[in-house]
Computed example of a mutant assay.
Amino acid sequence: MRIEAYTQVQQLYNTKKVSKAQSKSGAGRSADELQISDFGRDIQIAKQAVAASQDVREDVTASIKSQIQVGTYDVGIESFADKLMKRYEEMR
C-alpha cells in the first residue's frame, strides 16, 4: 500500500473541509444589496400604471354597447371579412 497517495488524498479532503468552515464563519461580510437600474424602475412604474388602469375603455365601448342593445349596430360583412383575412395572413 502506498502511503504517499493516501496522504495526498487526505490533504485534498482536509483543504475542502477547512474552506467550508471558513465560508460558514463569514466574518467581515457586508449585507446583501440590490440595485435596480433606471430602466428597471421605468418598467416598475409602467406595471403600476397598467395595474391601476381600467381593463375596458368605457368611453370607446359605451356607444357600441348602446347600439347593440338598441339593435342598430351594423357590422359590415366586407370589412369584417377583410380584417379576418388580414389576421389570418399575419398569423401564417
Rank of each mutant, 00 (worst) to 15 (best):
E78L: 07
A62R: 03
A46W: 14
A49N: 09
S63E: 15
S19M: 07
S37M: 10
Q48P: 02
Q22C: 09
T7R: 14
E33G: 09
D74W: 02
Q54N: 15
G28C: 07
E78C: 03
E78T: 11
A49W: 09
I45H: 13
Q54I: 12
S30F: 02
A5T: 07
T7C: 09
D38K: 06
D55M: 08
A81G: 02
R29G: 01
Y88H: 13
R57Q: 15
A51T: 10
K20Y: 05
M91T: 13
Q22M: 11
G40H: 00
I3D: 14
D42R: 13
R29V: 03
E90S: 11
F39M: 02
Q22V: 05
Q44G: 07
Q10G: 13
Q35G: 01
R29N: 04
S66Y: 03
R57W: 10
Q22I: 09
I45Q: 15
Q48H: 10
A46Q: 15
A27V: 07
I3H: 15
K47Y: 13
M91H: 12
I68L: 15
G28T: 05
G40C: 00
E4P: 02
K83Q: 08
A62I: 00
K86A: 07
S66C: 03
Q11T: 12
A81H: 03
S23M: 02
Q8W: 08
Q54M: 14
I43H: 11
M91W: 11
K83F: 04
A21C: 02
Q11H: 08
M91C: 10
Y13E: 11
V9E: 15
R2S: 12
Y73H: 09
F39L: 11
I43Y: 05
V56K: 01
A46M: 15
S19T: 06
R29H: 04
S53N: 04
E4G: 09
R57T: 14
A46R: 15
I36R: 06
S23V: 01
A5N: 07
M1V: 10
V60Y: 13
N14S: 08
R87W: 10
E33L: 06
Q67N: 10
S79Q: 02
K20S: 06
K24H: 11
E89A: 15
S53I: 00
K65C: 08
M85R: 03
G26S: 09
I64K: 10
K16H: 10
K24E: 11
G71I: 03
A52T: 09
F80A: 00
